[in-house]
Design a protein around this nucleic acid. Structure first.
Length: 754
DNA sequence: AGAGTGACTTAGCAATTTACCA
DNA sequence: TGGTAAATTGCTAAGTCACTCT
C-alpha cells in the first residue's frame, strides 16, 4: 500500500467528524477527488488502522490510549450523523434552512461526544502540537474586478487608461480618499511610489499620459463609483442579502474546518489577505505601501505527511508542502511590507488554542506563590550598588505596578512606540517629591498618560537614570532589554516573563473587584457592577478605544431624553395639584421638585418636543408617499400634512398655556390622583434606568472592555461570578466567547478562585 | 551577547449583524 | 417596520518571546 492511499483511507475512518458538507464527501477526499459524486467517493473508503504522522514511536503509543477512547465515541456518533445527512439529502433547499437551524440547537445536546481536553490529565509537553492534520488549504481573494470603461483616473484633467494591475492599485487609494489614511501625506507618498512602480512594471499608461505628480491625480470619479456600489449594496432587500450570504457560506464551507488528530476543528483565518494599501497605525513610516497579492506559489501548506494535498488554484502550484507537527499553523506566506510571515491558524474555540489559553492562565496563577518574593526582592534591589540590578528592579516595579509591557527594540521603519525597557528620557517627567508623569505611545500608538505617585526609591532611581549626560532620545534603561529581564524572571519561576505580570495583575484585580460586589439586586444591577470591575482592569491595562463620531451627539440626546422624562414627571405632579390643591400640605416633599424646573428649562423642553413632533410628521408624510408612489397609489395631499402639523401646533399652544400656569390637560385615562401617581412611579424608574445607562456610556466611551475580557481576565472568574450571582453567562460572554471559553464554563465550580 | 528569524498572543478599528425605539 | 445605535465579529497590525546562528 502506498503512503497516499493509506492516508486517504485512514482519514475516512474519522470522517463522521467532518460531514459538514451537504453531501457525504469526507474532507480528506474533497481535496483529492473533485467533482466526484458522493456515492462513488463513499465506496472508495476502506477501513484502516490509525495512521499517525509522528515518527516518534513513544509519543505515538503514549497518545494511542487516549485516542482510542475518542475513536470509539466517534464511531457511535458516526451512525447518527449518517442518518441526519441522508435526511438532508432528500430535502428541498428551503426546508434545509429550517433544518440547519434546528441542528445548531442539537449540537449543544450532542456534547457528550465532544473532545473535552480539560477533563483528561494534561500532559506538560506541548512541543508536539498534533499527530494528524488534514485541511483544504486556503481561500484566495477574488481576482481583480476591473472598473467600468467610463470610470477613470484623471491626470491634470485628462482621462487616463491604466493597465489593470495599476488600476487596481489606484482603486485601493480611491477607496480611502476621504479617510484619515487618504489624507495622510506619508500614506500618499508611499502609495504613489508603489503605484508608479506598478505602472512601470505594467508598461505605463495605455494612452500615453505620463503620471508624475500626485497632486495632479484625480481619484474622485473612482471614489464616487465605489460609493455608488456601496449604496446599491445597501439597497438590497433582506432576501437578496440572505441569498448572497448563503452562497458565500457555501463557498467557504470547505475551508472552515480541518481535521486535527481525527477531530473536526474550526480554522480561524482561512482567507488569504487580499492585496491593499498597508494601513499602519500611528505615525508609521511604511503606511500606504502596496501590500501585494499573494499567490499559491507564495504559500507554504502544513499538514500530515500522508494527508491529501488540496488542489492549488488552476494553473498554479503551492510554494511548499511541509509536515511540521511542532507548530500550530496550517498555512503561511511572507508578506512584502516587512518580509515577515502571516499564518493561517486554528480558531479561538479549537482545542489547541484552548489549551494554550488554559496554560497561560495557570502560569499567571502560579505567579501568586512567587509574587511576594519578587516584590520583596525588587524593593531591596532598588538600592543595589549594581546599576543593572537597580534598572531591573525599577523595570519590574513598573511592569508590576503600572502594567507596562516589556518594550522590545523597534526598527527605524516602524512607528515609534515604546514599552518599559524602551522608555526614553522624554517619556518620564519627574515632579518632586515622588510624582512621575508617564507620557508615551505604546502598542498600536495608543497613548499612555498617567500622573502617579511612586515609591520614593523608584523616584530617586528614575532621577539617576535621567542624569546627564542623558538627554531626550536616550534610553532610560540603558542596560536592559526584555530578554535580560525575562532571563532574570525565570529564576523565580519557569516560564515567567514580563507579560505574565499583565495577565496576573489583570486577573487578580478582577478577582478583588468581584469580591466586593454584594450578592443582591437585579441581574441588570449585577451586570453593571461586573462591567465596573471589568473597567477597572481595562484601565489598568490601558485598553482604549477612540470615541465614535456620534458619541457626543448620542450623549446629548440621552441627556435630553432624561430631561424630558423629568419634565413629564413634574408636569404630572403639577396636574395632581391642579386636581386637588390641598394634597400639597400632606406631602410637601413629594412636590418640592416642581420648583427645580425653571421656566426657561421648561420652555426649552417644549421647543424640543414640538420640533421633534414636526419632524416626525414630515418624515412620516414623505415615507408614506414614497410607499404609495412605489405601489402606484394616489399620493397624500399636502393638506394632510398641514392637518398633522396643525395638531402639533395645538400642542404647542397648550404648552404655552401651561407655561403661563394654565390647566394641564392629560389623557382622559389619567383621571384620578392614584392613576397619575402610578404613572409617576413608572417615569421615575425610567429616569433611574436611563441615568445609569448614560453614566455607564460616558465612563465607557474611551475604555475598551473587550480586550481584557478576551485576553487577560481568567474566564473562570466570570463563570464563577455567574454561578454565584445567578447571572446568565450569555449576559457576559457572547457566543464566540462562550465557545472560546468552553473549557472554563464546564470545568469550574463556585468555590474556584484565581 | 547580539542579530535575525519564526511563531505565537494581543490589539483597535471596520464591517456586519442584531436590538431597539418610535 | 424601518431607521438608527449598540453589540458582535472579522480583520490584520503590532506586540512578546523563544530559538538559532555566529
Amino acid at each position: 500500500m502506498t503512503r497516499s492511499t493509506s492516508s486517504s483511507s485512514s482519514t475516512s475512518n474519522n470522517r463522521s467528524q467532518l460531514s459538514s458538507d451537504e453531501d457525504d464527501i469526507p474532507l480528506s477526499q474533497t481535496a483529492l477527488i473533485k467533482n466526484q459524486s458522493p456515492e462513488s467517493s463513499e465506496q472508495t473508503s476502506v477501513k484502516n488502522e490509525t495512521d499517525y504522522d509522528s515518527d516518534d514511536v513513544l509519543a505515538r503509543q503514549h497518545k494511542k490510549r487516549k485516542l482510542k477512547k475518542i475513536k470509539e465515541e466517534e464511531d457511535n456518533k458516526n451512525a447518527a450523523l449518517k442518518n441526519s445527512n441522508k435526511k438532508r439529502k432528500s430535502m428541498k433547499k428551503d426546508e434545509l434552512k429550517e433544518d440547519l437551524k434546528g441542528e445548531e440547537e442539537e449540537e449543544e445536546e450532542d456534547e457528550d461526544n465532544e473532545y473535552k481536553w480539560w477533563e483528561g490529565q494534561n500532559d506538560d509537553d506541548d512541543t508536539i502540537k498534533w499527530h494528524s492534520l488534514i485541511h483544504n488549504g486556503v481561500l484566495f481573494p477574488p481576482d481583480y474586478n476591473p472598473l467600468p470603461a467610463h470610470i477613470k483616473l484623471y491626470y491634470d484633467g485628462k482621462p487616463v487608461d491604466l493597465p489593470l494591475d495599476a488600476e487596481e492599485v489606484a482603486g485601493f487609494y480611491a477607496a480611502l480618499l476621504e479617510t484619515d489614511h487618504g489624507k495622510n501625506p506619508v500614506f500618499q507618498k508611499n502609495f504613489f511610489n508603489d503605484f508608479l512602480q506598478v505602472l512601470k512594471e505594467t508598461g505605463g499608461t495605455l494612452n500615453n499620459v505620463e503620471i508624475k505628480d500626485f497632486e495632479k491625480c484625480d481619484f474622485s470619479k473612482i471614489h464616487a463609483f465605489f460609493q455608488l456600489q456601496k449604496d446599491q449594496k445597501k439597497q438590497l432587500s433582506a432576501q437578496e442579502r440572505k441569498q448572497l450570504r448563503l452562497e458565500k457560506e457555501k463557498f467557504e464551507e470547505p475551508f472552515k474546518f480541518c481535521e486535527l488528530d481525527g477531530r473536526k476543528e474550526q480554522v480561524g483565518n482561512f482567507r488569504v489577505e487580499p492585496p491593499d494599501l498597508f494601513r499602519g497605525r500611528g505615525a508609521h513610516p511604511k503606511t500606504g505601501k502596496l501590500k501585494r497579492r499573494v499567490h499559491a506559489e507564495d504559500i507554504v501548506l502544513n499538514l500530515s505527511k500522508n494527508a491529501p494535498i488540496p488542489p492549488p488554484p488552476e494553473g498554479h502550484r503551492w510554494g511548499e508542502i511541509r509536515h511540521d507537527n511542532t507548530v500550530q499553523w496550517l498555512a503561511m506566506w511572507r508578506e512584502n511590507i516587512f518580509n515577515s510571515f502571516k499564518y493561517v491558524r486554528l480558531a479561538a474555540n479549537s482545542s489547541l488554542k484552548g489549551q494554550s489559553d488554559y496554560k497561560k492562565f495557570e502560569k499567571a496563577r502560579q505567579l501568586k506563590s512567587h509574587i511576594d518574593a519578587i516584590r520583596k526582592d525588587y524593593r531591596k534591589n532598588l538600592k543595589s550598588k549594581v546599576m543593572l540590578e537597580r534598572q531591573k528592579a525599577v523595570a519590574i516595579y513598573l511592569i508590576d505596578v503600572f502594567a507596562l509591557r516589556a518594550g522590545g527594540e523597534k526598527s527605524e521603519d516602524e512607528a515609534d512606540t515604546v514599552g518599559c525597557c524602551s522608555l526614553r528620557y522624554e517619556h518620564v517627567t519627574l515632579k518632586p517629591p515622588n510624582t512621575v508623569i508617564f507620557d508615551f505611545l505604546g502598542k498600536d500608538s495608543i497613548r499612555f498618560y498617567q500622573e502617579v505617585e511612586v515609591d520614593k526609591q523608584v523616584f530617586k532611581n528614575l532621577a539617576i537614570f535621567k542624569r546627564p549626560p542623558k538627554q531626550p532620545g536616550h534610553q532610560l534603561f540603558d542596560r536592559l532589554d526584555p530578554s535580560i529581564l525575562n532571563k532574570y524572571l525565570q529564576n523565580y519561576m519557569p516560564g515567567l516573563t514580563a507579560k505574565v505580570f499583565r495577565t496576573y495583575n489583570a486577573s487578580k484585580t478582577m478577582q478583588d473587584q468581584l469580591d466586593l460586589i454584594p450578592n443582591k439586586g437585579s441581574v441588570a444591577e449585577k451586570l453593571l457592577k461586573y462591567n465596573a470591575a471589568n473597567r477597572t482592569v481595562a484601565i489598568l491595562c490601558n485598553h482604549q478605544r477612540t470615541v465614535t463620531k456620534g458619541h457626543a451627539l448620542s450623549v446629548e440626546r440621552a441627556n435630553m431624553k432624561i430631561k424630558e422624562l423629568i419634565w413629564q414627571k413634574i408636569r404630572l405632579k403639577k396636574a395632581i395639584l391642579q386636581m386637588e390643591p390641598t394634597i400639597f400640605e400632606k406631602e410637601p416633599k413629594y412636590f418640592k421638585e416642581i420648583e427645580d424646573l425653571t421656566k426657561e428649562e421648561e420652555e426649552e423642553i417644549h421647543k424640543k418636543i414640538i420640533e421633534k413632533e414636526n419632524d416626525r410628521y414630515r418624515k412620516k408624510f414623505v415615507r408614506e408617499n414614497d410607499k404609495k408612489k412605489f405601489e402606484n397609489e394616489e399620493l397624500l395631499e399636502e393638506k394632510v400634512l398641514t392637518e398633522w402639523l396643525d395638531k402639533v401646533n395645538d400642542l404647542k399652544l397648550q404648552y404655552e398655556k401651561e407655561l403661563k400656569g394654565g390647566t394641564i390637560e392629560l389623557k382622559p385615562s389619567l383621571n384620578t390622583v392614584e392613576k397619575i401617581k402610578t404613572q409617576i412611579e413608572k417615569l421615575e424608574q425610567r429616569i433611574q434606568i436611563s441615568s445609569i445607562q448614560l453614566k455607564d456610556k460616558e465612563e465607557n466611551s474611551e475604555v475598551s472592555l473587550g480586550t481584557s475580557k478576551v485576553n487577560y481576565i481568567d474566564p473562570r472568574l466570570s463563570v464563577v461570578f455567574c454561578k454565584k450571582y445567578n447571572v446568565p453567562i450569555e449576559k457576559i460572554f457572547t457566543k464566540a466567547l462562550r465557545d472560546k471559553f468552553k473549557w472554563a464554563i464546564e470545568s469550574v465550580d463556585e468555590e474556584w478562585r484565581f
